[in-house]
Design a binder for these strands. Structure first.
Length: 489
RNA sequence: CGGGGCGUAGCGCAGCCCGGUAGCGCAUCUGCUUUGGGAGCAGAGGGUCGCAGGUUCAAAUCCUGUCGCCCCGACCA
């Protein structure tokens, strides 16, 4: 009778798909690698958007919107950038369809003079535009964000974690000095860290990427990395210090206060619907989705129970009053009084959909002035007084929020290991998975070798490293501090 | 791009080997009884069996081709 969710221990990948389906977050579309984000999933994204957007505004950014299509010539202006994205671009070549005997076909006569790229990211078109916006240091900084969809022609896709089209935000900023741009990149990384930890309840490691993992066209890529329950790491957000690479490529100069003409300094930063995948894999269990209260579309669901019309009348009134009162207290609450479903069905459904807190009320509770509270994260049930719920429930929600974070942080700690030599490294990777801190000589060759031999990559060089110099586990050369390895999504 | 799987009712699937009236569960609709962890009974509606050829008296089933999606590996957020 229970919903068919594969157990995590049995098949983690299938479990993930089952949760996404049963929680009604998204479904596969007829188009390979693309998904339909269903209302439950989109509501979650909207809550993330709202919070992030506030945080961007708080740090001085404004939203704008740039085109979906990018002239092919733009993309080739920055050498590293085009190299990084060339292999995964959707290209628009024609503008018209015609009817033929076999149905519909591309009209050969509608071939575009200049082909258009569906944006994989917007640096190029934005920097082409910024050139016109910037003349003087007085025009700087430019602090812009855009909410958009992007397309990357991926070989292998997974709902939310990697889809060919995904939703994201991309911030693009222009600055007069290197220091200012670097500070911006750090600032936004911190915004991401705080969003991940304080709202998603997902503990993250902050760090800087190695050259091979760096964003194409960036000087430095900073990231937040999160550890999933199956021991694989997820890159959850990135913030790039772009140096003057795009300013050079698009000839974006400004006249500084000293009268000299200079190249502009840049950053870009983004998080995507991938965060939803990360959140699922951070908190959910074999019963389905578990959501942090701060982002849950519905924080509290009230399920009424009755056997006859009299009970229905009294329970409905009791429930409705509670509903109104919680709503006025600013809680995202739903009174699920649908008559076509029985209470047991609703319990199970809200559980699989991850609603953080359930309130059940029946005739007994009405008589005793009580309600039954059930926490989604712990599955604990408790009979409590109706009195004072308006104050108590926000507290419980915050407790759930912080308990989720603590549990995930504790799990991540357990999944973080230290390897003193390569053998131990490989053994840990096979037996435990998770993060492995190990010494590395900072050469691309060693990094490559480890990746080829173990499939583990350097997730990042932690921004706040342990201060214990050592020797690279491969080459034996000096390493100022251990770096973070893991297999990843 | 390799390897595997799948396409049959809204969803999940069986049927295919061995050709012979297209089925099951869930969902939907009607009625009655139910409601503190996914209700029961009775009845009803719903299908170009992915597509195109072929074999045959007869094809979901056999043959050939083709399209698509999913999963696992090589690239990436």
């Amino acid at each position: 009778m229970a919903k068919k969710i594969t157990e995590r221990s049995n098949d983690y990948s299938q479990w993930y798909l089952d949760v996404v389906r049963e929680a009604q977050l998204a479904s596969h579309s007829p188009v390979r690698g693309c998904m339909v984000i269903k209302p439950n999933g989109y509501a979650l994204w909207e809550n993330m958007q709202r919070q992030l957007d506030d945080m961007f505004k708080e740090t001085g950014h404004q939203n704008a919107y740039f085109p979906l299509f990018i002239p092919k010539s733009f993309l080739s202006k920055e050498a590293q950038h085009v190299e990084g994205f060339a292999k995964e671009c959707a290209v628009v070549t024609h503008s018209r369809l015609i009817n033929t005997e076999d149905g519909i076909a591309v009209d050969p006569s509608s071939k575009l003079e200049e082909e258009l790229i569906v944006r994989p990211t917007s640096e190029t078109i934005i920097w082409d535009t910024y050139r016109d916006w910037i003349q003087s240091y007085r025009d700087l900084p430019i602090l812009i964000n855009q909410w958009a969809n992007v397309v990357r022609w991926e070989m292998r896709t997974r709902l939310f974690l990697r889809t060919m089209e995904f939703l994201w935000q991309e911030g693009h900023t222009a600055h007069a000095t290197e220091q200012e741009a670097r500070e911006e990149a750090y600032r936004m990384l911190e915004v991401y860290r705080s969003f991940a930890e304080d709202y998603m309840a997902m503990p993250v490691e902050t760090g800087v990427k190695t050259e091979s993992e760096r964003f194409a066209g960036a000087v430095d890529t900073y990231c937040i990395e999160a550890m999933m329950q199956d021991g694989k790491a997820l890159q959850a957000g990135t913030s790039h210090f772009l140096g003057q690479n795009f300013a050079k490529a698009f000839d974006v100069r400004f006249q500084d206060s000293d009268g000299k003409e200079k190249l502009v300094w840049a950053t870009s930063w983004g998080v995507s619907t991938r965060l939803i995948g990360g959140m699922i894999m951070t908190h959910s269990d074999d019963n389905g989705l578990v959501l942090p209260p701060r982002l849950a579309p519905t924080q509290v669901v009230i399920v009424p129970i009755w056997r006859n019309d009299d009970e229905k009348a009294s329970v409905s009134e009791y429930g409705n009053t509670l509903f109104q009162s919680l709503k006025e207290a600013g809680i995202r609450v739903r009174f699920d009084d649908r008559d076509q479903y029985k209470p047991g069905w609703k319990f199970a459904q809200h559980e699989v959909e991850g609603t953080p807190l359930r309130i059940a009320i029946g005739p007994r509770d009405v008589a005793n002035n009580k309600v039954e509270l059930a926490r989604r994260d712990t599955l604990n049930k408790e009979l409590v007084d109706r009195e004072g719920l308006e104050q108590r429930i926000p507290e419980i929600l915050e407790t759930i929020q912080s308990d989720l974070f603590k549990a995930a942080a504790e799990r991540t700690r357990r999944q973080t290991h230290t390897a003193s030599d390569y053998n131990e490294f490989k053994n840990l990777l096979e037996s435990e998975g998770g993060y492995i801190l190990a010494h590395w000589d900072r050469t691309a060759e060693t990094e490559e070798q480890i990746k080829n031999e173990t499939k583990a990559t350097i997730r990042c060089l932690p921004l706040k490293p342990e201060k214990n110099p050592g020797k690279c586990m491969i080459s034996g050369k000096e390493s100022p501090y251990p770096v973070l390895f893991a297999r990843s999504y």
